[in-house]
């Protein structure tokens, strides 16, 4: 299993798309965090970490989701799934190794992104005399865990839907558009915003405090992990039965 995880980490490191997504996520967070903390006029009630978490958390999570999907669907898109399965015939072991590799890198991405946000807030808070420390710990934990779990969800989606474009477009449309639209339906309105993918991910970011519309951070983390595990489990069942013809 360790050999296969090493191989999967190496695959991610040796494709430009992955490196680009990783770099873009960090660049967006770095530049935007510095700009916001340096130039925005915060009033007395504003919390810089809350703003950064609400604005940039979803972007990093979405990119992590895409990284997870790419880690699987690239194999099918380019046909490398065939030589890979000739070396690792156990499909479940292969996909779980991909999951571990993506989780490791997404944890790093989430932690560094969170650290940039928290660090920018703290430094500019001192310099410009605004509250740059509130939610710092929760934001760091939320960014780290939230990014990792979204990447894991992406791996599960990729295992379930082999078509790369379909998987990425589908999950992004659902996350950014469809879930909000479905949330307008009266009998769904009461629970989807709270328990849906977006609501749970936002709650996990840790910047909503005691807001009753959001789950607590630990519960949100467990629920998102459950969602990712369910998608992954369904994907693995389908994957085992599927014919690999390309």
């Amino acid at each position: 299993m360790i050999n296969v995880v090493n191989s999967e980490l190496f695959k991610l490191r040796t494709t430009r798309t992955f490196l680009a997504l990783f770099g873009i996520a960090l660049a967006i967070v770095l530049v935007a965090s510095i700009c916001i903390c340096a130039f925005v006029n915060f009033n007395g009630e504003d919390v810089s970490n809350e703003i950064l978490g609400i604005v940039f958390g979803p972007i990093v999570r979405a990119l992590a989701l895409v990284i997870g999907i790419l880690a699987v669907t690239n194999e099918f898109r380019h046909g490398t799934i065939t030589p890979t399965l000739l070396v690792v015939p156990d499909r479940v072991r292969l996909m779980l190794s991909k999951l571990v590799a993506v989780l490791a890198l997404a944890l790093a991405l989430g932690f560094v992104s969170g650290a940039i946000m928290v660090g920018s807030s703290a430094i500019f808070g001192e310099l410009r005399d605004f509250d740059g420390s509130q939610y710092a710990g929760a934001l760091l934990i939320g960014m780290t865990v939230g990014t990792a779990l979204n990447a894991a969800l992406g791996v599960g989606v990729g295992v379930l839907v082999r078509n790369q474009v379909g998987a990425i477009v589908g999950i992004l449309i659902y996350g950014f558009i469809l879930e909000d639209l479905i949330g307008l339906i009266p009998w769904v309105r009461d629970w989807l915003p709270k328990y849906g993918l977006g609501g749970v991910s936002n709650a996990l970011s840790g910047v909503y405090g005691d807001d009753a519309d959001f789950l607590s951070q630990p519960v949100a983390g467990l629920l998102l992990a459950l969602y990712a595990a369910i998608v992954m489990a369904i994907g693995l069942v389908v994957m085992r039965r599927r014919d690999v013809t390309a």
């Binding site: 050999n3 494709t15 430009r16 046909g79 065939t82 030589p83 000739l86 070396v87």
Partner: peptide, 25 residues
Amino acid sequence: AVLDGGMLHPGRSGRNHLRTLAKAS
């Protein structure tokens, strides 16, 4: 085994393609 010609990621070098498979085993 070789099936349907070598199936490769176009952005990865030939050496790295082999290394991904070698590392896995």
